[in-house]
Design a protein around this nucleic acid. Structure first.
Length: 301
DNA sequence: CTCCAGGGAGCCT
DNA sequence: AGGCTCCATGGA
């Protein structure tokens, strides 16, 4: 096992690992101890979090002065990328739109960063996210890893990697339904087959202009505009992407009604222009804040 | 019992 | 293009 630490002083802006990994951005990090993903807002600030990237197990936890890591490889550069530690958070916030709701969200979870999950795992997890509660999306990914991942021995435990496209492409719809994927089972199988065969892959998406990248993403089965935005934002670093789920639709109706345009593409464009640069960052703060029970502060006069 | 969860595909005009 | 309807599963 290799170990190390990334001093917080080396990171531009604040860091909050718990807010980053428990804000519904990623279903590919979990707690190896205790096994629960806290949705109750209680402190998990010093807990270890685990992921598997390219057959390497990586654990991280935040201390008062650093982000500690341990893993099967020298994980420092991987952790910096995966947790968005390169993002200059002060600059991101400084450039963003500010209003009472956005300020409250940012103040509540200062240090929340946009993750960069591996493309295929992110794609599969968000296909699974359709009409599904956060806790159960985690359970689906855990079952997929256990059934279709590669076992890795780490710290005396057996950890399963995120499945390869070919592994899920070889599964049948019935196999995946047995893992409680429901009607998402054929979507996952067919999308995995597209990636495995080379018909459509990350290479066809990454680097394209945002709106074209999103449109291309929807060629995957089980991927509409919302899931496309999630993958662009949480895997490929398209910080302009603003996933418009039911929470954000409600938020727009309640707080930004002028941005409501009926069609997803048009509402998205209006909302992105309203939020300003790196709109996806602000969207993610709003999503986590609203879903955790936060509300717009009453104007004080 | 009903309703809903970080939606999307298929089919209809 | 835009508007239905259906789709699994489990917890409240």
């Amino acid at each position: 096992m290799e170990r190390g630490a990334i001093p917080l002083d080396d990171v531009p802006g604040a860091v909050d690992v718990q807010a980053t990994l428990e804000s519904g951005q990623t279903y590919l990090w979990w707690r190896p101890d205790g096994d629960t993903y806290r949705t109750d807002g209680l402190s998990g600030g010093d807990a270890w979090y685990r992921t598997v990237i390219d057959d390497d197990v990586i654990d991280v936890r935040q201390t008062a002065t650093a982000i500690e890591w341990r893993g099967t490889t020298d994980a420092a550069p991987i952790v910096r990328d995966a947790l968005g530690l390169h993002d200059d958070l002060d600059a991101v916030r400084g450039a963003a739109r500010s209003d009472p709701l956005i300020t409250a969200a940012w103040d509540a979870y200062d240090g929340l960063r946009i993750v960069r999950d591996p493309f295929f795992g992110c794609l599969v997890s968000f296909i699974c996210s359709a009409q599904m509660r956060v806790e159960r999306i985690f359970e689906m990914q855990e079952r997929l890893r256990r059934e279709y991942g590669t076992p890795i021995t780490f710290d005396g435990q057996t950890v399963y990697s995120v499945p390869e496209p070919s592994a899920l492409a070889a599964a049948t719809e019935s196999d995946l339904r047995d893992l409680k994927l429901g009607y998402r089972a054929p979507y996952v199988q067919r999308t995995a087959a597209m990636v495995a065969s080379g018909e459509l892959t990350k290479r066809d998406i990454d680097g394209r202009a945002y709106e074209l990248a999103r449109e291309t993403m929807t060629d995957f089965v089980g991927v509409g505009n919302k899931v496309a935005d999630c993958v662009l934002l949480f895997s490929l670093g398209y910080l302009a992407a603003v996933p418009l789920d039911t929470w954000m639709q409600t938020a727009i109706e309640d707080h930004y009604p002028d941005c409501e345009r009926g069609r997803y593409e048009d509402t998205s464009r209006a909302f992105r222009e309203h939020l300003g640069p790196h709109a996806g960052y602000t969207q993610t703060y709003l999503f986590h804040y609203l879903r955790s029970g936060g509300s717009a502060p009453e104007p004080t006069e």
